[in-house]
Amino acid sequence: MAQATPTLGRKSSAPWDRLRPVKQDPLESMGFVSKGDNRLLDPKTQESFYNKIVARYMQFCTQHAKDLDSAFASLSLEEACSSTTAPVRNQAIRVTDLPPVRAPSPHQHDFPVHVYGQASGGPSASPSAELSTILLALRKLREGLLASSASAQNPVFSQRVHVFNIRAAILALHPEGYHPSLLHLLTTLHTAEHPLPRSELIEMITYQILDTAIRQNDLTSAYALRYKCQVRVGFKSRVVDSILNSVVTGNWVTFWRVRHKVDGYVRAILHWHLESQRTMALKAIGQAYYSCDVRWILQSATSGEMDWDELVRAEDVGWMRNGDRVMIRKPKAKTG
Protein backbone atom coordinates (compact mmCIF):
# COMPACT_ATOMS: atom_id res chain seq x y z
CA MET A 1 0.00 0.00 0.00
CA ALA A 2 1.44 3.34 -1.08
CA GLN A 3 2.27 5.80 1.63
CA ALA A 4 0.46 9.14 1.66
CA THR A 5 2.44 12.07 0.45
CA PRO A 6 3.45 14.19 3.45
CA THR A 7 2.01 17.64 3.53
CA LEU A 8 4.35 20.55 3.13
CA GLY A 9 2.49 22.87 5.47
CA ARG A 10 3.35 22.99 9.21
CA LYS A 11 0.59 21.93 11.57
CA SER A 12 1.91 24.10 14.37
CA SER A 13 4.21 27.05 14.46
CA ALA A 14 5.20 26.47 18.07
CA PRO A 15 8.47 24.61 17.34
CA TRP A 16 9.51 27.38 14.95
CA ASP A 17 8.45 30.29 17.14
CA ARG A 18 11.51 31.92 18.66
CA LEU A 19 9.61 34.79 20.28
CA ARG A 20 8.35 33.93 23.73
CA PRO A 21 5.50 35.92 25.25
CA VAL A 22 6.73 38.72 27.49
CA LYS A 23 6.08 38.14 31.18
CA GLN A 24 4.64 41.40 32.39
CA ASP A 25 4.57 42.47 35.99
CA PRO A 26 0.86 42.51 36.93
CA LEU A 27 1.37 45.69 38.96
CA GLU A 28 3.23 47.54 36.21
CA SER A 29 0.94 46.41 33.40
CA MET A 30 -1.95 48.42 34.86
CA GLY A 31 -1.95 52.07 33.83
CA PHE A 32 -3.19 55.35 35.28
CA VAL A 33 -6.78 56.42 34.72
CA SER A 34 -5.55 59.95 34.04
CA LYS A 35 -3.50 58.58 31.14
CA GLY A 36 -6.39 56.78 29.49
CA ASP A 37 -6.37 53.34 31.13
CA ASN A 38 -9.94 52.93 32.40
CA ARG A 39 -9.64 49.39 33.78
CA LEU A 40 -9.34 50.60 37.36
CA LEU A 41 -12.73 52.29 37.14
CA ASP A 42 -14.35 48.86 37.50
CA PRO A 43 -14.97 47.82 41.16
CA LYS A 44 -14.11 44.16 40.55
CA THR A 45 -10.85 45.11 38.87
CA GLN A 46 -10.05 47.44 41.76
CA GLU A 47 -10.60 44.63 44.28
CA SER A 48 -8.51 42.20 42.27
CA PHE A 49 -5.69 44.71 41.82
CA TYR A 50 -5.71 45.51 45.54
CA ASN A 51 -5.40 41.80 46.37
CA LYS A 52 -2.35 41.57 44.10
CA ILE A 53 -0.75 44.58 45.77
CA VAL A 54 -1.32 43.15 49.24
CA ALA A 55 0.09 39.77 48.22
CA ARG A 56 3.12 41.47 46.70
CA TYR A 57 3.67 43.54 49.84
CA MET A 58 3.47 40.46 52.04
CA GLN A 59 5.94 38.72 49.76
CA PHE A 60 8.27 41.72 50.02
CA CYS A 61 8.15 41.58 53.83
CA THR A 62 8.74 37.83 53.84
CA GLN A 63 11.62 38.00 51.37
CA HIS A 64 13.44 40.72 53.35
CA ALA A 65 12.42 39.56 56.83
CA LYS A 66 16.05 39.20 57.93
CA ASP A 67 16.85 42.83 57.12
CA LEU A 68 13.49 44.55 56.84
CA ASP A 69 14.82 47.85 58.13
CA SER A 70 17.27 48.27 55.26
CA ALA A 71 14.68 47.09 52.73
CA PHE A 72 12.20 49.80 53.73
CA ALA A 73 14.90 52.45 54.03
CA SER A 74 16.35 51.62 50.61
CA LEU A 75 13.83 53.74 48.71
CA SER A 76 14.44 56.94 50.68
CA LEU A 77 18.21 56.44 50.67
CA GLU A 78 18.22 55.89 46.91
CA GLU A 79 16.19 59.08 46.37
CA ALA A 80 18.54 61.01 48.64
CA CYS A 81 21.59 59.78 46.74
CA SER A 82 20.06 60.60 43.37
CA SER A 83 19.08 64.13 44.41
CA THR A 84 22.45 65.17 45.82
CA THR A 85 26.07 64.13 45.68
CA ALA A 86 26.64 65.09 49.30
CA PRO A 87 26.96 62.32 51.89
CA VAL A 88 23.65 61.08 53.24
CA ARG A 89 23.19 62.45 56.74
CA ASN A 90 19.92 60.78 57.64
CA GLN A 91 20.35 57.53 59.48
CA ALA A 92 18.44 54.57 58.07
CA ILE A 93 15.27 53.90 60.01
CA ARG A 94 15.34 50.73 62.03
CA VAL A 95 12.06 48.84 61.87
CA THR A 96 13.18 45.38 62.89
CA ASP A 97 10.75 45.59 65.80
CA LEU A 98 7.78 46.29 63.53
CA PRO A 99 4.34 45.25 64.72
CA PRO A 100 2.72 42.42 62.79
CA VAL A 101 2.22 43.52 59.19
CA ARG A 102 -1.29 44.95 59.03
CA ALA A 103 -2.21 44.56 55.42
CA PRO A 104 -5.92 43.83 54.92
CA SER A 105 -8.55 44.78 57.47
CA PRO A 106 -9.05 42.22 60.25
CA HIS A 107 -12.52 41.30 58.97
CA GLN A 108 -11.15 40.49 55.50
CA HIS A 109 -9.95 37.08 54.38
CA ASP A 110 -6.27 36.34 54.01
CA PHE A 111 -4.83 36.89 50.58
CA PRO A 112 -2.54 34.21 49.12
CA VAL A 113 0.91 35.23 48.00
CA HIS A 114 1.07 34.47 44.29
CA VAL A 115 4.45 33.59 42.87
CA TYR A 116 5.02 35.19 39.50
CA GLY A 117 7.75 35.10 36.87
CA GLN A 118 11.07 36.84 37.08
CA ALA A 119 9.76 39.92 35.33
CA SER A 120 10.80 43.48 35.98
CA GLY A 121 9.87 44.34 39.53
CA GLY A 122 9.67 40.65 40.50
CA PRO A 123 11.31 38.94 43.46
CA SER A 124 14.76 39.33 41.89
CA ALA A 125 14.42 43.13 41.79
CA SER A 126 16.23 45.32 44.30
CA PRO A 127 14.28 46.27 47.46
CA SER A 128 14.02 49.90 46.36
CA ALA A 129 12.70 48.94 42.91
CA GLU A 130 10.17 46.51 44.38
CA LEU A 131 8.99 49.02 46.97
CA SER A 132 8.68 51.69 44.30
CA THR A 133 6.55 49.33 42.19
CA ILE A 134 4.21 48.63 45.12
CA LEU A 135 3.78 52.31 45.99
CA LEU A 136 3.22 53.25 42.35
CA ALA A 137 0.57 50.53 42.05
CA LEU A 138 -1.17 51.92 45.12
CA ARG A 139 -1.13 55.36 43.53
CA LYS A 140 -2.78 53.95 40.40
CA LEU A 141 -5.45 52.28 42.50
CA ARG A 142 -6.12 55.42 44.55
CA GLU A 143 -6.48 57.42 41.36
CA GLY A 144 -9.01 54.90 40.05
CA LEU A 145 -10.94 55.01 43.30
CA LEU A 146 -11.05 58.79 43.23
CA ALA A 147 -12.27 58.83 39.62
CA SER A 148 -15.01 56.29 40.38
CA SER A 149 -16.01 57.66 43.79
CA ALA A 150 -19.25 59.15 42.48
CA SER A 151 -20.55 55.72 41.44
CA ALA A 152 -19.20 53.79 44.44
CA GLN A 153 -21.79 52.32 46.79
CA ASN A 154 -19.80 53.17 49.93
CA PRO A 155 -16.27 54.25 50.80
CA VAL A 156 -15.39 51.21 52.94
CA PHE A 157 -13.18 49.59 50.32
CA SER A 158 -11.51 52.91 49.58
CA GLN A 159 -10.86 53.33 53.30
CA ARG A 160 -9.11 49.96 53.41
CA VAL A 161 -6.92 50.88 50.46
CA HIS A 162 -5.92 54.23 51.93
CA VAL A 163 -5.14 52.79 55.37
CA PHE A 164 -2.93 50.14 53.79
CA ASN A 165 -1.24 52.72 51.56
CA ILE A 166 -0.56 55.06 54.48
CA ARG A 167 1.08 52.35 56.56
CA ALA A 168 3.25 51.10 53.71
CA ALA A 169 4.34 54.59 52.62
CA ILE A 170 5.17 55.63 56.20
CA LEU A 171 7.51 52.67 56.61
CA ALA A 172 9.09 53.51 53.25
CA LEU A 173 9.67 57.11 54.44
CA HIS A 174 7.69 58.33 51.44
CA PRO A 175 5.66 61.45 52.38
CA GLU A 176 4.40 61.90 48.84
CA GLY A 177 2.72 58.53 49.22
CA TYR A 178 1.13 58.83 52.65
CA HIS A 179 0.41 62.52 53.28
CA PRO A 180 -2.20 63.17 50.54
CA SER A 181 -3.78 59.80 51.28
CA LEU A 182 -3.93 60.60 54.99
CA LEU A 183 -5.69 63.92 54.41
CA HIS A 184 -8.19 62.36 51.99
CA LEU A 185 -8.95 59.54 54.39
CA LEU A 186 -9.62 61.77 57.40
CA THR A 187 -11.42 64.63 55.64
CA THR A 188 -13.41 62.83 52.94
CA LEU A 189 -13.66 59.07 53.39
CA HIS A 190 -14.29 59.12 57.14
CA THR A 191 -17.94 60.14 57.42
CA ALA A 192 -20.76 59.84 59.92
CA GLU A 193 -22.45 57.25 57.69
CA HIS A 194 -19.26 55.24 57.14
CA PRO A 195 -16.86 56.02 60.01
CA LEU A 196 -13.45 54.45 60.38
CA PRO A 197 -13.10 51.90 63.20
CA ARG A 198 -12.17 53.72 66.39
CA SER A 199 -8.71 52.15 66.60
CA GLU A 200 -7.85 53.08 63.01
CA LEU A 201 -9.19 56.61 63.45
CA ILE A 202 -6.95 57.21 66.49
CA GLU A 203 -4.02 55.65 64.63
CA MET A 204 -4.43 57.88 61.58
CA ILE A 205 -4.90 61.03 63.67
CA THR A 206 -1.70 60.16 65.52
CA TYR A 207 0.19 59.94 62.25
CA GLN A 208 -1.24 63.24 61.04
CA ILE A 209 -0.34 65.14 64.22
CA LEU A 210 3.17 63.72 64.43
CA ASP A 211 3.84 64.25 60.72
CA THR A 212 2.75 67.88 61.07
CA ALA A 213 5.01 68.42 64.07
CA ILE A 214 8.02 66.34 63.06
CA ARG A 215 8.39 66.23 59.29
CA GLN A 216 6.67 69.54 58.48
CA ASN A 217 8.17 71.19 61.58
CA ASP A 218 4.91 73.02 62.29
CA LEU A 219 4.32 72.68 66.01
CA THR A 220 1.61 75.36 66.11
CA SER A 221 -0.53 73.49 63.60
CA ALA A 222 0.19 70.19 65.33
CA TYR A 223 -1.07 71.47 68.69
CA ALA A 224 -4.10 73.04 67.00
CA LEU A 225 -4.87 69.75 65.27
CA ARG A 226 -4.50 67.81 68.50
CA TYR A 227 -6.94 70.15 70.27
CA LYS A 228 -9.47 69.99 67.41
CA CYS A 229 -9.38 66.19 67.38
CA GLN A 230 -9.67 66.09 71.15
CA VAL A 231 -12.86 68.17 71.00
CA ARG A 232 -14.41 66.43 68.00
CA VAL A 233 -13.59 62.75 68.59
CA GLY A 234 -12.13 62.66 72.10
CA PHE A 235 -8.60 62.02 70.88
CA LYS A 236 -6.06 61.32 73.64
CA SER A 237 -2.56 59.92 73.36
CA ARG A 238 0.25 59.92 75.88
CA VAL A 239 2.69 59.06 73.11
CA VAL A 240 1.73 62.14 71.10
CA ASP A 241 1.84 64.37 74.18
CA SER A 242 5.26 63.07 75.23
CA ILE A 243 6.74 63.47 71.75
CA LEU A 244 5.40 66.98 71.27
CA ASN A 245 6.63 68.02 74.69
CA SER A 246 10.09 66.55 74.10
CA VAL A 247 10.43 68.36 70.76
CA VAL A 248 9.29 71.70 72.19
CA THR A 249 11.53 71.53 75.27
CA GLY A 250 14.48 69.81 73.61
CA ASN A 251 14.26 66.92 76.09
CA TRP A 252 16.22 64.28 74.23
CA VAL A 253 16.00 61.81 77.15
CA THR A 254 12.21 61.63 76.82
CA PHE A 255 12.41 61.60 73.01
CA TRP A 256 14.69 58.56 72.88
CA ARG A 257 12.77 56.74 75.60
CA VAL A 258 9.46 57.17 73.82
CA ARG A 259 10.96 56.30 70.44
CA HIS A 260 12.14 52.94 71.76
CA LYS A 261 8.65 52.10 73.07
CA VAL A 262 6.47 52.97 70.07
CA ASP A 263 5.74 50.74 67.08
CA GLY A 264 7.50 50.86 63.73
CA TYR A 265 5.07 53.29 62.10
CA VAL A 266 5.54 56.03 64.70
CA ARG A 267 9.28 55.32 64.76
CA ALA A 268 9.36 55.89 61.02
CA ILE A 269 7.71 59.30 61.37
CA LEU A 270 10.14 60.22 64.16
CA HIS A 271 12.95 59.50 61.69
CA TRP A 272 12.46 63.01 60.29
CA HIS A 273 13.56 64.50 63.62
CA LEU A 274 16.70 62.41 64.18
CA GLU A 275 19.11 64.80 62.47
CA SER A 276 17.74 67.82 64.35
CA GLN A 277 17.83 65.83 67.59
CA ARG A 278 21.49 64.92 67.09
CA THR A 279 22.48 68.46 66.21
CA MET A 280 20.64 69.94 69.19
CA ALA A 281 22.17 67.45 71.64
CA LEU A 282 25.70 68.01 70.33
CA LYS A 283 25.33 71.80 70.56
CA ALA A 284 24.11 71.55 74.14
CA ILE A 285 26.96 69.24 75.10
CA GLY A 286 29.50 71.45 73.33
CA GLN A 287 28.37 74.53 75.24
CA ALA A 288 28.17 72.85 78.65
CA TYR A 289 31.24 70.59 78.90
CA TYR A 290 34.97 70.68 78.33
CA SER A 291 35.18 66.88 78.04
CA CYS A 292 32.74 63.99 78.19
CA ASP A 293 32.54 60.25 78.20
CA VAL A 294 32.11 59.05 74.61
CA ARG A 295 29.36 56.59 75.55
CA TRP A 296 27.30 59.35 77.17
CA ILE A 297 27.64 61.51 74.06
CA LEU A 298 26.49 58.67 71.83
CA GLN A 299 23.59 57.89 74.14
CA SER A 300 22.49 61.53 74.28
CA ALA A 301 22.84 62.28 70.57
CA THR A 302 21.84 58.96 69.01
CA SER A 303 20.49 56.76 71.81
CA GLY A 304 23.31 54.36 71.02
CA GLU A 305 22.16 53.84 67.42
CA MET A 306 25.45 55.19 66.01
CA ASP A 307 29.05 54.53 66.91
CA TRP A 308 31.56 57.34 67.24
CA ASP A 309 32.87 57.14 63.67
CA GLU A 310 29.34 57.23 62.23
CA LEU A 311 28.48 60.26 64.34
CA VAL A 312 31.63 62.08 63.27
CA ARG A 313 30.85 61.48 59.59
CA ALA A 314 27.15 62.38 59.91
CA GLU A 315 27.56 65.58 61.94
CA ASP A 316 31.13 66.60 61.02
CA VAL A 317 32.18 66.47 64.66
CA GLY A 318 35.64 67.98 65.22
CA TRP A 319 36.14 66.93 68.83
CA MET A 320 39.26 64.95 69.68
CA ARG A 321 38.77 61.50 71.17
CA ASN A 322 41.24 59.96 73.59
CA GLY A 323 40.12 56.48 74.54
CA ASP A 324 36.78 56.68 76.32
CA ARG A 325 36.97 60.45 76.72
CA VAL A 326 36.26 63.19 74.20
CA MET A 327 37.97 66.58 74.48
CA ILE A 328 35.35 69.14 73.46
CA ARG A 329 37.21 72.36 74.16
CA LYS A 330 40.22 73.38 76.19
CA PRO A 331 39.79 75.67 79.18
CA LYS A 332 41.22 79.11 78.74
CA ALA A 333 44.50 79.71 80.50
CA LYS A 334 44.30 81.97 83.51
CA THR A 335 46.04 85.30 83.05
CA GLY A 336 47.79 87.20 85.75
Rank of each mutant, 00 (worst) to 15 (best):
M1T: 08
A2F: 08
R10N: 04
S13N: 03
P15R: 10
W16Q: 07
P21Q: 10
V22Q: 03
Q24N: 10
D25R: 01
P26L: 04
L27I: 04
S29V: 06
V33M: 13
K35D: 05
N38M: 02
R39S: 05
P43F: 00
T45M: 12
E47W: 00
N51M: 05
K52N: 15
H64M: 00
A71G: 00
A71D: 07
F72P: 05
A73Q: 11
S74D: 12
S76P: 01
A80L: 13
A80S: 14
S82K: 14
S82I: 15
T85E: 07
T85K: 05
P87S: 03
R89W: 12
R94H: 10
P99R: 14
H107L: 11
H107T: 13
Q108F: 02
D110L: 02
F111G: 03
P112Y: 00
V113N: 06
V113Y: 09
S120G: 04
G121T: 14
G122Y: 11
P123L: 01
P123H: 03
S126V: 00
S126I: 01
S128I: 02
E130S: 12
A137N: 07
A137V: 09
A137Q: 07
K140N: 03
L141N: 11
R142P: 02
S151Q: 05
Q153R: 15
F157A: 01
Q159V: 07
Q159I: 08
H162K: 12
H162E: 07
V163E: 14
I170Y: 02
A172G: 05
A172C: 01
E176P: 02
G177T: 08
P180E: 01
L182Q: 13
T187Y: 04
T188H: 01
E193P: 02
H194D: 01
H194Q: 01
L196N: 08
P197R: 12
M204P: 01
T206D: 00
Q208A: 15
I209H: 05
N217P: 02
N217G: 02
L225T: 03
R226L: 13
V231A: 07
S237M: 10
V240R: 09
V240D: 11
V240E: 07
V240I: 09
V240K: 06
D241A: 04
S242I: 14
I243K: 09
L244H: 14
S246F: 06
S246A: 12
N251G: 05
V253G: 06
W256M: 06
V258P: 00
V258L: 00
R259F: 09
K261Q: 13
V262S: 08
V262I: 12
V262H: 10
A268K: 09
L270Q: 15
L270M: 13
W272G: 03
W272H: 11
W272F: 11
E275Y: 09
S276Q: 15
K283F: 12
Q287E: 14
A288D: 08
V294D: 04
V294F: 14
W296D: 06
L298R: 10
L298V: 14
S300R: 09
W308A: 07
W308H: 03
A314D: 07
G318P: 00
G318V: 01
W319G: 06
W319S: 05
W319L: 04
M327K: 05
K332A: 14
K334D: 10
